[in-house]
Design a protein around this nucleic acid. Structure first.
Lengths: 336, 336
DNA sequence: ACTTGGCACTCGGGACCACAGAGTGCTAGA
DNA sequence: TCTAGCACTCTGTGGTCCCGAGTGCCAAGT
């Protein structure tokens, strides 16, 4: 059905259209890519490709433009991820290495990715659920106030001020701290609820009210923050591009955590592989494409990152950048 | 020079232009606002206003449009801040009251302001420099690793992992913690460098290497974070508006902390008053207007917040919203 | 002295038209 | 199966025309 030459034609159409943003015609195509056939032949192939739904023409007597299906085929079979240049890789490495804490890592990553791809970059914070507790700290602020700090192995720090039901002295706080750390140290966040369930019973009666309050806040923190934070950068790159869905919709989606979440990929599974969603394949935001991947050390995927751009996008280059950045971030996080 | 009627004409022009986005002509003006004079008279006044530079016409035989100078006069003398409705105020109050920590307060504030004004909202985090230390905590992570946490009276928490030059046991850490808290508790962040300057000398020789490392990180944290964090929301509201300076420039400015900083107002002084910058009065970003104000409890101004929008903006309403939000945020922060 | 009505003038924007150019589909021939 | 030629169909562009909104100015009115 689709012989090699037809595929070559499709590839040429995608490449030309991406670089020129104009419907590409048979003549220009036959010239620019040395296909060694005449425009007429190309026209026949184009007719076939259009028949199959890989390309379309905006109006009669205009050139052809790839459809979502056409881009899909291009990405799956006609292109390969383009690696970054050595200079770019060095730049990424040094830029990311300068980060001082998790916030900084994420901020730098998202900016870097935006600049590299000239698209909107989106980065999800490392998932709490997959982290483990490194330390729990209780800080006595005043008679009835305690600050609860949870530090995870990914460097993430969650803190809350807890208002206690009664006055508690330093000694009890110290005791609670010790118990909490003994119970939770090193365990996965997902396991925390189970582990602390029977904790109050194991304490002296006088400790229970304070402990119950603290534990409820602790659980609340972990659960509430389960809907992970997502940040983006490079919105300015949207200014030039033209989206079938309005620019306004895209900007709104970017500020809506939930939508961003869906766009990056469902949270239940975080596949390490590079995934590409093209046009209508996206939930909520048709007319845009998303190139995303998981990051994290090896088998332990922490979260996802990627870029969002118009369907007419240079997929090989974008995929290369996303993959490279994900790798370097993973390294940084694993090292710290 | 400018009698009352001319001012009334200017006000009418601004109001009409803001609501219709079309140059306003003498006839429509005389009708819609009952000025009780004929269009011809209005034309004479308009000619005078144009002579003075308050209005201009895009081209001959079009209506008039306010200039920056016209808006300035309007804001200064011809309008008054429009208070929010009771319903709106209640909504603000309940929405902000639901915040659980400082991050949440800031996030909610910026979203609220964006929604309320249908512009881009910008909020600066409470300044470290004006906060006081509530508590310093050292958490022993491993042999040579300590987490340093600084909690301020505004609920802000800064933390850093410190790599120590030598192995330190719990007892020494506890001692350092005690000394730090005794020295710094309740003092302004600006005073911290002075207070800790001679600290190593007052310690036992064996504590000094660790202390020096920790202190240098502490100072670094306070200094580096002095360039305050700024967040924005409501970029989607830019989609409809038309800026003389390109949309791209505006989006870029929003992602550039430094520029945002300048736009909100110079940091050295944080006046509590509502300030309005119109068009070319803005550094870097001509063609936009900014309505901003300080917030914080009473005499103690913590930082600034405001909105950014096209010069053609409903100033009375926007100013009302900004002022109201600033007040409620100040309340919330003072209470916590 | 200010206001008003009248009038000529100017310019932008929409409707209309014609035309060139790019690109196609089809058919017949190599 | 590929190629060349040809007629056809669009879009986009430039030109022209005209309408209408709005102005500036002048002379008359209060």
């Amino acid at each position: 059905m689709l012989d090699d030459r037809k595929l070559a034609v499709l590839r040429a159409i995608v490449e030309d259209y991406v670089s020129t943003n104009e419907p590409v015609g048979s003549k220009a195509l036959a010239e620019r890519h040395n296909l060694k056939v005449s425009p007429a032949t190309v026209r026949n192939d184009m007719a076939a490709l259009e028949e199959e739904g890989y390309i379309t023409q905006p109006h009669t007597s205009a050139g052809r433009v790839p459809t979502d299906k056409g881009y899909r085929l291009f990405v799956d079979r006609l292109s390969q991820v383009k690696p970054l240049s050595a200079a770019e890789r060095r730049a990424i490495e040094t830029f990311l290495a300068g980060a001082v804490d998790l916030d900084d890592v994420v901020t730098r990553t998202v900016r870097l990715l935006a600049q590299l791809t000239r698209q909107v970059a989106v980065v999800q914070y490392p998932a709490l659920a997959r982290s483990t507790v490194r330390h729990v700290e209780l800080v006595h602020l005043s008679d009835r106030r305690v600050m609860l700090v949870v530090i995870t192995n990914t460097g993430r720090v969650e803190q809350r001020v807890v208002e206690l039901p009664e006055i508690v002295d330093d000694q009890r706080i110290a005791h609670l701290r010790a118990v909490l750390n003994a119970t939770l140290d090193g365990c996965g966040l997902a396991a925390v609820p189970d582990l602390v369930a029977d904790l109050p019973e194991r304490l002296a009666a006088e400790d229970r009210p304070a402990a119950a309050t603290i534990l409820s806040v602790l659980l609340e923190t972990l659960v509430e923050r389960h809907d992970e934070k997502i940040v983006f950068a490079g919105a300015a790159n949207l200014a030039g591009a033209d989206f079938t869905t309005g620019l306004r919709d895209v900007l709104e989606a970017l500020e809506e955590q939930v939508v961003l979440m869906r766009l990056l990929g469902e949270t239940s599974d975080i596949p390490a592989a590079l995934t590409v969603r093209i046009g209508a394949e996206n939930p909520y935001l048709h007319g845009t494409s998303i190139v995303a991947t998981g990051y994290g050390s090896g088998d332990r995927q922490l979260a996802r990152l990627g870029v969002l751009g118009p369907t007419r996008m240079d997929y090989p280059v974008t995929m290369g950048a996303v993959r490279a950045v994900a790798r370097y971030v993973s390294q940084i996080l694993a090292a710290s």
